[in-house]
Design a protein around this nucleic acid. Structure first.
Length: 312
DNA sequence: TGCGTATGTCAAT
DNA sequence: TTGACCTACGCAT
């Protein structure tokens, strides 16, 4: 379910509540029994996200690499610390941390409920359970879940393009621009290519292209450097909002009422995503749906009509 | 109860 | 380009 923002939030959650702790690792479902035994009882040393992948570092050069894929999700139980200013703001800062259950990765429907017993019984297909004295994290449905060493971590990260949440430097932006400019591939495909830019998924792709008023079919090499820099900066901006709020909020300058609506329901949240056949919020033209990269692409044929590009 | 869908990726063809 | 895979949920029957 997650695009880059949720993976970064999850990595932050681990940083808060697991890093520095000795972790009991098990595989209630059994499918990760071997990997679990490799890291069981080790101290967690760090937690990182790059794009949609997360790397949890343990002692002895053992790393847990996780990719949630389409349906993966983490559930946290017990002590679950607030991870952003916004979540801090909901309770008083410095107040005792809550004992609760929180589902992450399905940020659209993040739930937090009271917890009666600790640790709770695993429910459903839990591939991995990580447990400290105070906190439990259950992983279900990941595409990737494996124990590797730091050399293999380096290989995995090498395959990924820049991720602004991990490196927002100008060099990172340049890397993105350069990669896009060398390819004849449509920009709508390049934004989904994790080696070009890491962390963008199907929702952010559609929304970023609309915000840029960019035709998804424009070949990467035909998009001007100026527009690509703007596109990168917009991703920096949206990703930051995503990490802070846990939601893919892509519409700016909403009235407080519309902002509340956008937060409450997906139907009121996006410019074009999942809005095929509905009138464009800007020009009224019906939003189109087409397949691109075997994923559903939503766009406005009027606002995103011409590439309006000049080779710079 | 069963079907379709989903914010993803990879291997096989 | 297609199919396989991981799991949960909403909706129709």
């Amino acid at each position: 379910m997650p695009e880059g923002h949720s993976v970064h939030r999850i990595a932050l959650q681990f940083e808060r509540d697991f890093v520095g702790h000795t972790v009991t690792v098990s595989s209630p479902q059994g499918r990760f029994a071997e990997g679990a035994s490799e890291i069981d009882g080790l101290r967690m040393l760090s937690s990182h996200a790059v794009g949609k992948q997360m790397f949890l570092e343990f002692e002895n050069d053992r790393w847990l690499r996780i990719h949630l894929g389409l349906y993966g999700a983490w559930d946290f139980f017990g002590i679950v610390s607030p991870i952003t200013e916004e979540s801090e703001a909901r309770g008083s800062i410095g107040a005792p941390r809550l004992r609760r259950a929180l589902r992450m990765a399905e940020s659209e429907t993040a739930k937090s409920t009271d917890l009666e017993t600790f640790p709770p019984e695993p429910v459903g297909q839990v591939r991995v359970r990580l447990m400290t004295d105070e906190s439990v994290a259950d992983l279900r449905g990941p595409t990737a879940c494996e124990v590797i060493d730091s050399a293999q971590v380096a290989v995995a990260i090498e395959k990924l393009g820049p991720d602004p949440a991990e490196d927002a430097s100008r060099a990172s932006e340049d890397r993105f621009v350069k990669r896009v400019r060398t390819k004849p591939t449509p920009i709508g495909l390049l934004l989904m290519d994790q080696s070009v830019v890491a962390g963008i998924g199907n929702v952010y792709r559609a929304e970023l292209l609309f915000r840029a008023r960019l035709n998804p079919h424009t070949p990467g090499k035909n998009v001007s450097v100026k527009r690509l820099r703007a596109l990168w900066q917009d991703w920096v901006y949206l990703l930051d909002i995503g990490i802070r709020t846990g939601m893919m909020l892509t519409m700016d300058d909403l009235s407080p009422a519309d902002e509340a609506k956008a937060r409450r329901s997906r139907a009121d949240r996006y410019w074009v995503y999942k809005r095929e056949g509905l009138p464009c919020r800007v020009c009224g033209t019906n939003i189109l749906l087409e397949e691109m990269g075997s994923r559903k692409l939503y766009w406005c044929p009027t606002d995103q009509k011409t590439p309006r590009t000049v080779a710079a």
